[in-house]
Write a protein that binds this DNA or RNA. Structure first.
Lengths: 190, 190
DNA sequence: GTTGTACATGTACAACTGTACAGATTGAGG
DNA sequence: CCTCAATCTGTACAGTTGTACATGTACAAC
């Protein structure tokens, strides 16, 4: 089976994400990624066609991972609560998984921004966005909000902005939570 | 007078911003910036201590420029309209200046994100944020919203998210405008 | 005109970086 | 055991990049 290398490949992708989170895309080079993953330099060229390819796969990797998490959260019944509790539950789903991992969150924004410049990255970014928006749309339907697709789009972008502000300013997490809840309630309101 | 070089210095800063907007911070190197500004390589080391310094000054440059624009807009009476027209006027102020210059907008987000990693960039990013939030707070007061500082924080982050989404997905500008207006109205609502 | 200072730039080079590649190792199938 | 493909890795090297610096030029003050 051609599966022996899968673990190492993933280790390299994870390492790439950490390097980007810590120092931006500018900090990515084969040696830094190899060291971060604890593998020899040669491995990086074996698993990726080029540096650009490495960065691109890293985006697809985080996007896929995040999309899966959101879908799992949705199907796992995270939103199965009354409408009065839904906003804070939703805020927790969106925020909590990130609270502890500032570096990954930074990398995610870095890669999202990069997708604005490299058209071939758009599909991955869009699949991620889609999973995100589906979750929000579902919640908005449960909350009885009108025109859920549009509201979901608005809420998705707004929450992203809130997260970005939080990660940039390292603001108080509990304040972030309270702002997120308020945002959700306001955008869900008829 | 020690002022002869000011124009060239600004030309280099503008060039740096364009390079970042087009290719990200990873694309910045002395030669690329010099070529973009139409000056010889040596100029870059004359005006900046290092590459990091160059990028840092570029952030301060855009931040200062943007903060000034927002202040001018505010004092220039852009918000002197009735409460019914204020939301769309505000949306135009926030959005319109950017609509034509995708590259600069991308650079702004890139630099804002970078300020999360380099603490010495925070003051510049914060002065910018402050100018932005002051404008929004003023508008929210005119709209009679309660707790304007908090609402301004929320609106600031949300609108940023909306812009980020727009610049990443190259979405329809008129849809962006309509979403921005809705966001403003919802966050201003009592 | 001399001098001092800010401005300017071409060139050089050590360090870094992307990538190729030859050769080693592994492990499943025959 | 042999074969073969996948996996792995150390080394090499050409191209790039950050930065120093010697040398110049402009121009205000005296």
């Amino acid at each position: 089976m051609a599966l022996r290398g899968v673990a190492r490949r993933r280790a390299l992708l994870d390492a790439t994400v950490r390097v980007i989170g810590r120092g931006g895309i500018a900090a990515v080079d084969h040696r830094a990624v190899a060291a971060e993953a604890g593998v020899p330099l040669g491995s990086t060229t074996y698993y990726f066609d080029s540096k650009d390819d490495m960065v691109a796969r890293a985006l697809e990797h985080v996007a896929e991972r995040e999309a899966e998490r959101l879908r799992a959260e949705s199907e796992g019944g995270a939103l199965d609560v009354g409408p009065d509790l839904l906003p804070e539950r939703l805020a927790d789903v969106v925020i909590h998984a990130w609270a502890g991992d500032r570096v990954t969150l930074l990398a995610q924004y870095e890669l999202y921004l990069e997708s604005a410049r490299r058209p071939y990255l758009r599909p991955a970014a869009e699949r991620w966005d889609r999973a995100y928006r589906d979750l929000l749309q579902h919640a908005l339907e449960l909350l009885g909000a009108p025109d859920p697709p549009r509201r979901a789009r608005l809420l998705c972008a707004s929450l992203d902005g809130l997260l970005l502000d939080h990660v940039a300013t390292a603001s108080d997490p509990s304040e972030l939570r309270s702002l997120a809840i308020e945002l959700i309630e306001r955008i869900a309101a008829p």
